[in-house]
Design a protein around this nucleic acid. Structure first.
Length: 484
DNA sequence: TTTTGAGTTGTTCGA
DNA sequence: GTCGAACAACTCAAA
C-alpha cells in the first residue's frame, strides 16, 4: 500500500439525499469495520438526466454546507465531486482501494439506469455494492395494480399505499464513524455550486428558508406543534401559515417520507384524524408523481395523454414574460408569480391558479410553465413538477377535466378574502379596500386614486379578459377531443 | 372477459 | 343569496 493511501474505505455516495438520519447507506457503512469516505456527486448521468435549476442550486449549496458540518461532527470528511457517478466511483476506487460502495436509490429513469449498471459492474469486480431505500415509501417497480401495471389514478394508488403495513421506522444516524486517512481531492463548494453574485437574487430566499437537515427537523417540529391542527382546511389559504413548507427539504433529501409518517404515528398530536390523513395524502401525492415519472421517463416533455399532442398551444413571448414577472393584471396570479421569484416557492393553491392561467387563459404550452417552475422553485421535484403541470393542463394522469378552468378573481376572493397574500406580494395594490383588491379594474376612479393605483401604469390592466379567454380555451379543448 | 363504480383541488347558469 | 345541474365522456381498477 502506498504512503498516500489509508486503510481502504467504504464509500458512501450522496446525490439527492443530503442527510445523516434515516440514511440507509451511511448506516450500512457504519456497520462495517472500514473507515468511511463520504462523497457528494454533482452532475450528469447522461441521456435523459435533468440538471437542477437555479433556485434548486442555491438551496443545494447551503444544504451541502450543512451536511458537511454534520459529517465532520461524525468524524469523517465529505468530498465533493462532479461528473457521472460511475466515473467518480471508479476513480475513487482506483485512488483509495475502496472495496465497498453504499448509496441510496434514486428513481429518476436516467439515474435508475446508471445506478443499476454501476451496481452490476462493481459486483462483477468483487466490490461490495449495496443500495437502500429512503427517497420513497414504496419501490415504483413493486407498487402495482392487480393487473401488474402502474397506477394511473390517485385514489386507488392511495388505497394500495395505505392498505399494506406502515412504512418502516426511520434509521438512526450513526453515532461514530472511522475517518479515511488517505488523500482525496475535493472540489471547493463555491466552485462546484456557486451562489448567485451579480445580481444576488437570493435575498428573499435567505429570509424564507433554512436549508439542511436541522432546518427540516425544525420545520417539522413546528408544523406538528402548531400547523397540523386545521391543516385540512387551512392549507388552501395562502395568506395563512398552514402548510408544512417541507417540500424543498424533501426534494433535496434532507428528510424522508418515512420520517414524516413515523412522526405522525409517534407524536401526540393535537390535530384531528382529518388533518393527519390530509397531510399523509399530500406526501402520497409526491410519491404518486415520482412513480409516474418512473414509468413515464419523458414526463416533463411528453403529454401523458397523446391526444394533447394536437392541442393548439399559443406562442406569445410577451404574455409569457408578463406571467413570469407577475404582471398579468390578475392580483392572485401576480402575487403567486412574485412569491415564486422572491422566495423560491409558491403556495400550493396559487400554483394551481397560476398554472391554470398560463395553460387555459393564455393557452400556452404547459412545458413553458414547467420549465419556469423548474428553474425558480427551491422545491423543484422531477416528479411533482411535471406531473402537476400536466394535471392542470389536462394532459396528465388522473387530470383535471378540460372544463375546469379556474376563475382567478373568484379564486382570489375565496382563498385570500382578506387580501393578506396579495398585499404581501403586490404592494402597489395594498391600499385598495378588500372589496376591490382582486378586481382593481372594477374599482371606481376615486377608490383607485385614493389607493395610489393607476391601472396601466402602477399596475397592469388584465392582459386577457376572463370570459373570452375561458371560451377560447373551452373551444380549443373541444377541438382536440373531437379530433381524437 | 365483462361489468361496475368511481374519479384532488371548479365555474356558470338558471330556478 | 342559495342550490343543483350541466359541463363530457372516458379510462382506470377491481370484482
Amino acid at each position: 500500500m502506498s504512503a498516500s493511501k489509508g486503510e481502504p474505505p467504504a464509500l458512501v455516495l450522496f446525490r439527492n439525499d443530503l442527510r445523516v438520519a434515516d440514511n440507509g447507506a451511511l448506516w450500512a457503512a457504519s456497520q462495517t469495520d472500514k473507515p468511511v469516505l463520504a462523497v457528494y456527486i454533482h452532475g450528469e448521468e447522461g441521456k435523459g438526466f435533468r440538471a437542477h435549476g437555479g433556485a434548486s442550486l442555491w438551496w443545494r449549496h447551503h444544504s451541502l454546507k450543512a451536511l458537511d458540518t454534520k459529517l465532520r461532527n461524525l468524524g469523517i470528511r465529505f468530498v465533493l465531486q462532479r461528473g457521472t457517478t460511475r466515473r467518480i466511483v471508479d476513480e475513487l476506487i482506483e485512488r483509495t482501494g475502496a472495496d465497498a460502495v453504499f448509496w441510496n436509490r434514486r428513481y429518476e429513469p436516467a439515474c435508475v439506469t446508471a445506478d443499476t449498471a454501476m451496481k452490476g459492474a462493481l459486483r462483477e469486480r468483487g466490490v461490495r455494492a449495496e443500495s437502500f431505500d429512503g427517497e420513497l415509501l414504496h419501490e415504483p417497480s413493486k407498487l402495482l395494480t392487480g393487473a401488474g401495471s402502474f397506477y394511473k389514478v390517485y385514489t386507488p394508488f392511495w388505497k394500495s399505499l395505505t392498505s399494506g403495513p406502515d412504512p418502516r421506522d426511520p434509521i438512526d444516524p450513526p453515532t461514530s464513524l472511522a475517518a479515511y486517512s488517505g488523500k482525496v481531492f475535493s472540489i471547493r463548494l463555491d466552485d462546484l455550486v456557486p451562489l448567485p453574485a451579480k445580481p444576488d437574487w437570493a435575498g428573499g430566499m435567505r429570509e424564507s428558508w433554512m436549508p439542511g437537515e436541522d432546518g427540516a427537523q425544525a420545520l417539522l417540529d413546528e408544523f406538528l406543534k402548531d400547523g397540523l391542527d386545521g391543516y385540512a382546511d387551512g392549507r388552501d389559504f395562502p395568506g395563512r401559515s398552514a402548510t408544512s413548507r417541507l417540500s424543498p427539504h424533501l426534494a433535496h433529501g434532507e428528510i424522508t417520507p418515512h420520517q414524516l409518517f413515523a412522526a405522525l404515528r409517534e407524536r401526540k398530536i393535537a390535530a384531528s384524524g382529518d388533518d393527519v390523513a390530509k397531510f399523509r395524502k399530500e406526501i402520497a401525492w409526491r410519491e404518486f408523481c415520482r412513480h409516474l415519472l418512473f414509468h413515464n421517463p419523458n414526463l416533463h416533455d411528453r403529454n401523458v395523454q397523446p391526444s394533447f399532442d394536437a392541442f393548439p398551444w399559443v406562442t406569445d413571448e410577451t404574455a409569457l414574460r408578463a406571467w413570469q414577472r407577475g404582471m398579468t393584471g390578475y392580483p392572485i396570479v401576480d402575487a403567486g408569480m412574485r412569491e415564486l421569484w422572491h422566495t423560491g416557492t409558491m403556495h400550493n393553491r396559487v400554483r394551481m391558479i397560476a398554472a391554470s392561467f398560463l395553460t387555459k387563459h393564455l393557452m400556452m404550452d404547459w412545458r413553458e410553465g414547467e420549465r419556469w417552475f423548474w428553474d425558480t422553485l427551491v422545491d423543484a421535484d422531477p416528479g411533482s413538477n411535471p406531473a402537476n403541470w400536466q394535471w392542470v393542463a389536462g394532459s396528465g394522469a388522473d387530470a383535471a377535466p378540460y372544463f375546469r378552468i379556474f376563475n382567478p378573481t373568484l379564486q382570489g376572493q375565496k382563498f385570500d378574502p382578506d387580501g393578506v397574500y396579495v398585499r404581501r406580494f403586490v404592494p402597489e395594490l395594498a391600499a385598495l379596500p378588500d372589496r376591490y383588491l382582486h378586481t382593481p379594474w372594477d374599482a371606481p376612479k376615486s377608490v383607485l386614486s385614493d389607493a395610489g393605483v393607476t391601472l396601466g401604469e402602477t399596475y397592469p390592466t388584465p392582459i386577457v379578459d376572463h370570459a373570452r379567454a375561458r371560451a377560447r380555451a373551452l373551444a380549443a379543448y373541444r377541438s382536440i377531443r373531437n379530433a381524437a
